[in-house]
Design a protein around this nucleic acid. Structure first.
Lengths: 227, 227
DNA sequence: AGACTACATATTACATGTAACTATGTCAAG
DNA sequence: CTTGACATAGTTACATGTAATATGTAGTCT
């Protein structure tokens, strides 16, 4: 009798749409799909061995995520951000994440702190191993956690979407290990202020983080050699 | 020969998807489709006399807009916000619109001011005629314009999405003419500060607006009779 | 009555068909 | 060499088919 438990957690959200969306999402952020590249529905459906319907829906999802752009009757392409766009995304993120952190300093739970701690730890490891990809992934996680600190679903969701776009936007901008380490230290400063529930100091520390990144981007913009 | 000009500007973005999406969007915000109501794809396609494909895509769009909620294999329903949700939406909007206004005080163009002026005028008319629906429509416009003042597309887009959701969320909350007039006066104060390019005063005035709305919502929440 | 099963109905999720449109390459004329 | 007509290939947008799934209801057993 005990053998016939419910099929249970097996096919929870096993929809093809979600799998395809997840796959494309991954491939875009990992750089496997390059900015500007067309997302041809028949092509993708052939490669994945599924029909066009779920692929079409997945691509639409990506458009809604801001990771792909669509032009009517021309199809979608992987989003391609210029440096102008990157700065605007950064500006929007600054607004949202500062607010999230201010609210989060008050509302954060111990689970939130634990999650932050874990991500910071993995960042430290990535830096020690000079693992760029790894750092970028945990950086993504860190900022998304900042968004969820607000315990405001709308804010959290938007922070996540913008950070993904921001990652894609800065894809081309090379970053040195030194900058990664700077970023990590700034993350730490935010965390420490949060732990003390000092919202203004946390916001201030995060502001510094954004300011440095913005200036770094602007410098890169001013430079002549955009190879 | 001259008779055979191009079909030209006729079918610009005449996609069925867009028409269906626009229609449903309208019907949701206008209250014709009630919160919680299922958005059955075959049903809608029958009523509109189109196939299921464009309807399915339009519904997915609405989900992305935050105006409908989807559960896997159960379909989508019109979003149904509680008062808690309404407060959270308001919180997020406050963050985004305050930032937009601060940036807008610096960046706004004369075209922006003209657009604001026009919307404020139409608000005044709506109040004089005690036209609630009309006021709500121009209120929507006003806040969306505040979002676009930032000249940051990401911010502007999010402000618009949140304001739409907020409208749907407050649908149930009755509002008196007195409150509308208060809102209008607060809008005016924001505008006047903007014209002087005084970003802090503009932000302060908008903050007052949000504060009053929030308190009004909270009172309503505290009240026993949620008919 | 209450709970379980069986059946009927409707919808979702995925697959596939096809007309119209877009982009691209070829080739002749200027 | 450039321009524009034309054919070709690939894609989008919409339509439709269908198995699996969810939901509602009647009937059966305890």
């Amino acid at each position: 009798m005990s053998a016939s438990r419910k099929p249970q957690a097996k096919l929870q959200s096993e929809r093809l749409v979600d799998k395809v969306h997840g796959l494309l999402h991954r491939d875009i952020l990992s750089g496997k799909l390059l900015p500007g590249q067309p997302l041809s529905v028949p092509e993708i459906s052939r490669q994945l061995g599924v029909s066009r319907s779920p692929v079409r829906e997945a691509v639409l999802q990506l458009v809604a995520d801001g990771l792909a752009w669509e032009e009517a009757r021309k199809g979608a392409v992987v989003a391609q951000f210029g440096l102008e766009d990157a700065l605007q995304l950064l500006e929007a993120r600054e607004v949202l994440e500062l607010a999230s952190v201010r609210l989060g300093a008050v509302r954060a739970t111990s689970a939130d702190f634990a999650a932050l701690k874990q991500v910071l730890h993995s960042q430290q490891l990535s830096i020690q191993k000079a693992n760029f990809r790894g750092y970028l992934a945990s950086d993504l996680e860190f900022h998304k956690l900042l968004g969820s600190l607000s315990h405001n679903p709308a804010l959290g969701r938007m922070v996540g979407l913008l950070k993904d776009q921001s990652l894609l936007a800065q894809d081309s901008v090379s970053r040195s290990l030194v900058q990664l380490e700077l970023g990590f230290k700034e993350h730490l400063a935010v965390f420490e202020a949060l732990e003390l529930r000092n919202s203004e100091e946390a916001a201030g520390a995060l502001l510094k983080h954004f300011k440095r990144i913005r200036e770094s981007l602007e410098n890169w913009l001013a430079l002549p050699r955009h190879s």
